[in-house]
């Protein structure tokens, strides 16, 4: 078995107005089904060991969490080596429910953007209102980042976690690093 590695081998950009780093391998499971059904909810909370998030919310603790992707889709985060076991557990919990749980860990890349100007870096790239009052920790947003789809949420007041397709990891990393290049601050969101 070949050793799993991330798309950019942990690339990081430290010199800009926000720190960009590729995260180590993150387990991700797509769960599709009727989110109102108790089997789907139990499968999600059982694997991630956190509460169900509301619409457009993410409920994440360290490397575990549930993100609300759409009215019939959740993204379950868990440790990378727990994915297979979790999917087995979820499939069992789902039983006959019309639902799908699939491992997408290796189809995605994950980044962290940290710093007082992290909001600005993302605001330059996404058509999202990232002002302090409109985007806060706990919220989750799928959107367009320049030319590719991406999803992000805040882990604390100055950090974003972002996921994108793995094949676009280099593009996304370059986008973020360029948007964060030294001296490029707009200071739109500083309090």
């Amino acid at each position: 078995m070949s050793e799993p590695i991330t798309a950019l081998a942990g690339a990081a950009s430290e010199t800009g107005i926000a720190r960009i780093m590729e995260l180590s391998l993150q387990g991700m499971i797509t769960l599709r089904g009727d989110l109102a059904s108790s089997a789907v909810q139990k499968a999600a909370t059982g694997a991630a060991e956190v509460e169900m998030p509301g619409t457009n919310q993410a409920n994440c603790v360290e490397d575990r969490g549930i993100c609300w992707m759409s009215p019939d889709e959740l993204l379950i985060l868990c440790p990378y080596d727990m994915v297979a076991a979790n999917i087995d557990k979820m499939t069992e919990t789902l039983g006959n429910a019309h639902a799908l749980a699939v491992n997408v860990s290796d189809a995605r890349a994950a980044f962290r953007i940290t710093g007082t100007q992290a909001r600005e870096v993302l605001a330059k790239l996404c058509p999202v209102d990232l002002s302090l009052e409109n985007f806060a920790p706990g919220m989750f947003r799928r959107t367009r980042m320049a030319q590719v789809p991406a999803a992000f949420w805040m882990t604390d007041a100055e950090s974003f976690q972002l996921v994108c397709f793995r094949s676009q990891a280099r593009y996304v990393f370059d986008l973020l690093s360029i948007a964060a290049q030294p001296g490029s601050g707009v200071n739109a969101y500083l309090t």
Binding site: T55, N56, S70, P71, P127, R141, T143, R144
Partner: peptide, 11 residues
């Protein structure tokens, strides 16, 4: 109307 997100047309 499904997820309640307001965005400009490119999304």
């Amino acid at each position: 109307p499904v997820c309640g997100v307001t965005a400009e047309e490119t999304e």
